[in-house]
Amino acid sequence: MTSPSPSWSGFSASLRWEVIRWVRSRRVFLLAVPVVAGPVGSLLAFLYLKVASSDTAGLLGVLVVGALSGLVVLDLCALSIGEELSRRSHGPLLLLPVRRSALYAGRATAVLGATLGAYGIGALEVLELAHLLVPGSGSQVLALEPVHVALGMLAFLFLLGAVAFVAALVTGSASEALGLGVLAGFSVSVLLVYLLLERALTLAVPAGLAVAGAATLLLGLRTYVRMDVGGS
């Protein structure tokens, strides 16, 4: 006999479940993309473009790592609960005596924590590489500090992951969630470029992106808590 599972058990088991799924499906290697391919790609870009200043190199590197991380974030977040819904394998888990909010929080923490963590490591690597390999300061004044861009990118990726994660819940399909995530990424990128050109890209923008991501996750929690297992 078991007593009702405390929320912590549900949270930690759910977090572990996500990791086991990455390991068994070999998707865990995707997390190496921002950490390994990001710096390598950035290095090639520094050399090919003969970047003169370390700030420009850092900015370029953060954008390369961010773009690669975006793909990983979208993929893993869309496949998190979305894959289970597509295969109808969520039923046995939703019938367990545990708060669904704890299960949801565990899944979201694992997938967003790991993908954003991988981005963070990749971003730190390229910023360090930029300083080591491109020592010149250059004469050009950049519109944005590389470190600010790196932090802003974190908020952008958080929103992207949250959209893909929740879209999978709402549509019940990982592939549709991936499509919606790409669409969201494109729309937000266009908005960011516009704000940059208008010189309105202030600190409030990444903060707004992070708040939008958190709001999206809360919306997903509402859906998950009420989710049925299907059937006739």
Binding site: T2, S3, P4, S5, P6, S9, G10, S12, A13, S14, R16, W17, I20, R21, R24, S25, E83, E84, R87, R88, S89, H90, G91, P92, L93, L95, L96, P97, V98, L103, V229, G230, G231, S232
Partner: peptide
């Protein structure tokens, strides 16, 4: 067991059962 649930093909049987045990606390 309600409806006709599926499974994730790449997981081991023990993964699923252990997960249920952990979620049950």
């Amino acid at each position: 067991v309600v409806g006709s649930p599926g499974t994730l093909p790449y997981l081991k049987v023990s993964d699923l059962l252990e997960h249920v045990g952990r979620v049950r606390g």
